[in-house]
Structure formats: C-alpha cells, structure tokens
C-alpha cells in the first residue's frame, strides 16, 4: 500500500508536487497572517466552478489524439457569439442563459468540425497550428466586433464609438445564474452550488461518454491510431469528433465562466486564455498524450486555489502584486515541463 502511494507520488511528478507544496505553504502563511480564510476559500470555489468546464474541454482532445487543444479560443469565440446574440435581443434570466448555451453549442459543432478537418491535415503539428488558428480567429473577431451590426445600447459604445464594447456587464441578463442557484454558506464560506453542480454533471457525462462505443472509439484512436484502424475505426473521423466535442465544451465553458464572472470580455481577452487552462489540466497530472477526469478536477482545484491564495498572501509579504507574474511563470512553466518532458513524437 505504501509502495503504491509512493509510486503514485512519483508519477505525479516533481514539478507538480512542488506546486502542491507551494499551495499548502501559502495556505499556512495565510492563516498565520490572520487573513480571511473563509473569503479565500469562497473565492477559490467560485473560480473552480468558473473554469472547470473549460478545463474539461481539453479532455476529448487529449484522449482523441489531437493533443492539448491550443485552439480553445475557437470554442470560446463560439460561446461569446452565443451570448451576444441572446443579449442583443434582451433575452434575460434562464431563457437567456439557455439560449446562449444552445447557440454556443451549435456554433461549436460547426467550428469544431472545420477545425478537426484542418487538424487532420496537419498531423504532428496540431499544437502549433491550433495556437495560431486560435490567435487568428481572435484577431479576426476583433474586426467583426467592430463591424457587426449590433444595436442594443447595452452592448455598443455609448457615445459615437463604433462596435461592441470591450467589456459588457451581464448585470441585466443572467449574472451568477448558476453560482447563485441553491448556493449556501457554511462557516462563512459561500458555496457556488449551481456552478459546481454543473461542472460535476459535465464531468459525469463526459466520463459516461467515454464508456460508450463512440467514446471508446475516440479514446482508442488517441491511444493508438493504428490499433483503431485495425478495429474498423476511421481515425480521421474520430479525430474530428474529438475536436467537435472539445470546441463545444469550450463554448459552453466560456458561457458558464462569464455568468460567474459577471461580464463578457471581447476583443483580445480570449487571445491567451488557452494557456492557463492547459496549465490547469497539466498540473492535475495529465500529460501531452494522457488525461483523465481526475486530472481535470484535481488540476482545476489546485491551480485555481493557488491563484486565489497567491494573490493576497504574496502581496502581503512582498509589498507588490506578484500574483500576475507568478501566474505567468507557473502556467507556462508547467506547459514547458510537459512539452520537454515527453520525448518528441515526430510524425
């Protein structure tokens, strides 16, 4: 038993262990510094519910063999469009939220399908092509946010300016519609029940999916495309499915993220969003070619807790806000660790 624990610890990796230790140390420091522990925990719970589905969106990509989906912004854009359409027509509350999810999902299917077809043509370079497809789409949408004929005054610049605002408040639409659903407080800790439930439900559905014939075909392709082919699976087709699934989940994920955040952020905001999310998954113990639901949940919890605690604690000690710097170092460091740690698979 001890041996097993030790083995799991080694598999978890030194870099990740350091990060977990770091979180624990920060936590102790926070207690020593008499900080509002309840508030910190509430914050991290909110962030876990906010980011969870976005992290989950990476899972089908990794399992389906397209690698870490650096093209996540594609799905995020679909989600943003889904929200904006509903908001333009002043659909508020539950109906607004559901409509945003449905439009986001529908667009996600289309965009993911095209993306998957493209990735099939660039096998071996999915991560790099994905990154720049993401960048290109985000910067192209910058043009469209300016040009598209939105007219709802809550969305567009107030005076004379053209196009959509950079940040649009959801206050009149569905702020924290999930976070506040059945939310309760215990020991002053606010539990964003709805968001967490939504995250857990999606994890459950995705894990069920990977037990179905369809899901198992996708996973087999990712594990060994030649094996899949020998068993009558068309690897190109299953890869497209995994891209679709990933994109749809990202689209839904950003809607959930924004309802909790309370704002829709446009223009360059989604540009670098994929990187911290990928870092989340990797911190959870995933590798470039292997990821599980456990990695998703664990990674989200560790990374988001780190971010919420690091901010006040380190600021209190150093006297300057080091959290943004720490976030850059940790999230990119862990990605780099994963990229260089595995021997290169050249196509």
């Amino acid at each position: 038993m001890q041996k097993k624990i030790l083995k799991q610890f080694i598999e978890f990796g030194i870099a990740r262990s350091i990060i977990v230790l770091f979180v624990i140390v920060l936590f102790i420091l926070a207690i020593l510094k008499d900080m509002q522990i309840a508030e910190l925990i509430s914050d991290s719970l909110a962030r876990i519910g906010r980011n969870g589905i976005l992290v989950l969106a990476l899972l089908p990509g990794v399992r389906g063999g397209i690698g870490l989906n650096f093209g996540l912004p594609l799905g995020i854009i679909c989600g943003l469009i889904g929200m904006l359409v509903g908001m333009e027509f002043d659909w508020t509350g539950l109906s607004g939220f559901v409509s945003a999810l449905s439009i986001a999902g529908g667009l996600g299917v289309l965009a993911g399908w095209g993306y998957g077809v493209l990735l099939n043509k660039v096998k071996g370079q999915e991560m790099m092509v994905g990154t720049y497809v993401g960048f290109s789409i985000v910067s192209f949408m910058c043009l469209l946010w300016l040009l598209l004929p939105f007219s709802n005054p809550k969305l567009i610049w107030a005076l004379g300016g053209k196009g959509l605002r950079v940040t649009i408040s959801l206050a009149d639409y569905y702020p924290k519609i999930l976070d506040d659903f059945l939310s309760f407080s215990i020991f002053n800790v606010t539990i964003p029940f709805g968001s967490l439930l939504f995250f857990v439900l999606f994890c459950f559905f995705v894990s069920l999916f990977f037990r179905s014939r369809w899901g198992r075909a996708i996973a087999a392709t990712g594990a060994n495309a030649q094996f899949a082919k020998a068993n009558g699976i068309n690897p190109n087709q299953t890869r497209v499915w995994s891209a679709v699934l990933s994109t749809v989940l990202a689209a839904i994920g950003i809607v959930v993220y924004n309802q909790s955040f309370g704002f829709v952020q446009l223009y360059t905001a989604p540009l670098l969003m994929a990187f911290p999310i990928i870092a989340c998954l990797l911190i959870g113990g995933a590798e470039v070619g292997r990821a599980t639901i456990t990695h998703v949940i664990l990674g989200t919890v560790i990374f988001q807790t780190l971010l919420t605690i690091a901010l006040p604690v380190t600021s209190a000690f150093i006297g300057g806000d080091i959290s943004e710097t720490a976030r850059i170092i940790i999230s990119n460091g862990i990605i780099l660790y994963a990229l260089a740690g595995v021997k290169g698979k050249t196509a």
Partner: peptide, 17 residues
C-alpha cells in the same frame, strides 16, 4: 503498434474488437 492499447487494461484490450 497495431495489436494493443498499451495503457488500457487487459479487459479493455480483450473486449475491444
């Protein structure tokens, strides 16, 4: 390369086809 899912259980391998 073709015969096995190396990171899956014996059960999954045997039942896959």
């Amino acid at each position: 390369q073709t015969g096995l899912l190396l990171d899956e259980s014996i059960t999954h391998n045997i039942c896959f086809t």
